[in-house]
Amino acid sequence: MNDNNSDIQARILVIDDEPQIRRFLKVALTAHGFEMIEASLGQDGLNEAVMSKPDLIILDMGLPDMDGLKVLKQLREWSLVPVIILSVREQESTKIAMLDAGAVDYVTKPFGMGELLARIRAALRRSSKEADEPILELGDLRIDRAKRIVTVDEHPIKLTPTEYNLIKTLGSNPGRVFTNTQLLKVIWGPTYEHETHYLRVFVGQLRRKIEKSPSEPIHLITEPGVGYRLM
């Protein structure tokens, strides 16, 4: 089922057993120019993924026939398509497991439409050319990756190498969540992947430098129990 209708931004496969969720997603996604395909069971979802080759998959964690993690792992055996998880609050460990297994992001039910769309865009961006742009602009924050300069409202901010590393990593895909483990591995190395307090300290320091109101950050957002994202 290949089609190249230019109005359509991307094809999204939704795997969720709740018909109401699929219904409202269809309305919302279609309104935003996405084409939506649906499946209600894990196995059906995998089959559909093979057949219709979506650009993004939205996967519910609480499927009746298969564990979401299993679906993801099977998917990852042959496909790199970005996957966004639909999860419930308090399932942090499962979320982390999914992210580590290759999911790109997650949304917690009940979620706002805007939230979901932002994440869908962030996930799709990765595969597009935007990621190669050296300059990243997020509101009053500007990161020049080529010159390694970060400014807020045109004022340059002095960052330590580690702080720059952090903001750079998060900025490699703005809007997308990075798990604590991923960040620690990248910035400090694989042996440090459990030292979450490193992150806390540096995130705090970074916030104090780039946020207008550090206790109410708008750029460096914490995803409790999971990681961080740069918005």
Binding site: L166, W188, E195
Partner: peptide, 13 residues
């Protein structure tokens, strides 16, 4: 208090 934090590994970017 938590252990002293070393600077990150700059080479790993």
């Amino acid at each position: 208090s938590p252990k002293a934090i070393p600077e990150g590994n700059e080479l790993m970017n």
